[in-house]
Design a protein around this nucleic acid. Structure first.
Lengths: 230, 230
DNA sequence: GCGCGCGCTGAGCCGTCTTTGAGGAGGGCG
DNA sequence: CGCCCTCCTCAAAGACGGCTCAGCGCGCGC
């Protein structure tokens, strides 16, 4: 397993200064966000393995952040909060948070709860760097896509879209997940973008774009990348 | 979802007297055990959906119970404890417990954490084999339904309906439950939708749609998904 | 300035899914 | 036996989602 990446969302610098070295020492890579908007953007662009979220953010309610994240991502979320009102806890957990820790807390407990949350995560083949399907192969390290050995010219958006789909090979990726990760959280509803770019991608990678084998449409839900193993 | 069964392991009668009515009121079926040995036996024989475990047991250390359970079961475990030593929490979580709640606690928080833990279980089960019945198998992670190995084309509503029924395999799901979960609360009375779509589903998954084996009609009540195990 | 590649937007067409309606089979009960 | 309630089937409309194409704007290199 490669190093897990944790997004820490907190507007208090002292918390960041406390958590960053502690989590680094525990072997995690730490990403930071100070506001809810930053957090959503970072979650979409960097796809962290876990999110630690302070409920008290300057720009939006932490509960909104949870709800937005859960609209398109299954990433584990651990809430940190100084508020110990039971209704807050219940609301956050029912919105989809995975754990809720009250301040003050010990770093040992936090890392133990992080390990627990990461255990829950459904095992996926995220670390793949080489994928292939029907003559098309993707090398995410070289950032090169070839079809029958010939290199293909893909635009940045086309490439991001293809990689996102390929990382979830065999599974359906919802419209919202694709839009959020490729275009950003602000475009989670712009379905039309997706249709146009899927069309362009198919034109480049499919043998017969009218009968797509690699990128299948799942009506009303999203798209599915079908790899060589089915 | 059928009624989830929760095993409460605690040797203090007042805790049992407190939890039993509270959990029953929240819609769960409560099983009880007073000792670690009883708990392990009960877990093995009744296969509860979740275990609530007090660390302070008379006959053995709660941590042993966790370790033993984890040797053969993935059932979610929530620890209750009056001991708030951080090392206890860390040890329990790293042994495989899913959550750790300190006494005293609110019943609202407990049920919220129960819901969270049960949510995880559904995710994990989805990753496993998933249900099969009479040649039809459903994989909710890939979102694929196959019949005798051949993938089936199901529309979104058909798929939602089938998954809803399969999640409650062996039990009757009422018309109203199906309608509100697939079509939304506004269509809780549109029984006709259900009849049409059940008909379409049977046409696709049953060997003989006129003599349905997988989706049985329960006249006046609802429908029942019958899995391979009965 | 000019051309080009890329991303975004709008319009139109098409196929499928959903909804709706009508008609008929089966079973319980007076 | 005949009525009525529940359930099933079939078919057609309309709505919706999906695909394609054409065009515009922007930034970059020449």
């Amino acid at each position: 397993m490669s190093v897990e990446r944790i997004l820490v969302v907190d507007d208090e610098p002292q918390i960041q200064r406390f958590l960053r070295p502690a989590l680094s020492a525990a072997g995690y890579e730490v990403l930071e966000a100070m506001t809810g908007a930053e957090a959503l953007k970072a979650a979409a662009t960097t796809a962290p393995d876990l999110v630690i979220l302070d409920l008290g953010l300057p720009d939006m309610d932490g509960k909104e952040v949870i709800a937005n994240l859960r609209g398109w991502s299954q990433v584990p979320i651990i809430i940190l909060s100084a508020r110990d009102r039971e209704s807050e806890k219940i609301a956050a957990l029912d919105l989809g948070a995975d754990d809720y820790i009250e301040k003050p807390f010990g770093i040992g407990e936090l890392t133990a709860r992080i390990r627990t949350a990461l255990r829950h995560r459904v095992q996926m083949e995220g670390g793949q760097t080489q994928l292939s399907a029907d003559g098309v192969s993707i090398d995410t390290i070289k950032r090169v896509v070839t079809k029958d050995g010939q290199p293909l010219r893909l635009t940045p958006k086309e490439y991001d879209l293809l990689v996102m789909l390929a990382h979830h090979a065999g599974r359906v990726v919802t419209h919202k997940t694709l839009l959020t990760s490729v275009w950003g959280v602000a475009h989670g509803e712009d379905l039309h973008y997706l249709r146009v770019f899927i069309g362009q991608l198919r034109g480049k990678i499919e043998r017969d774009p009218a009968d797509p084998r690699i990128i299948r449409t799942e009506p009303g839900v999203g798209y599915r990348f079908v790899g060589d193993d089915g």
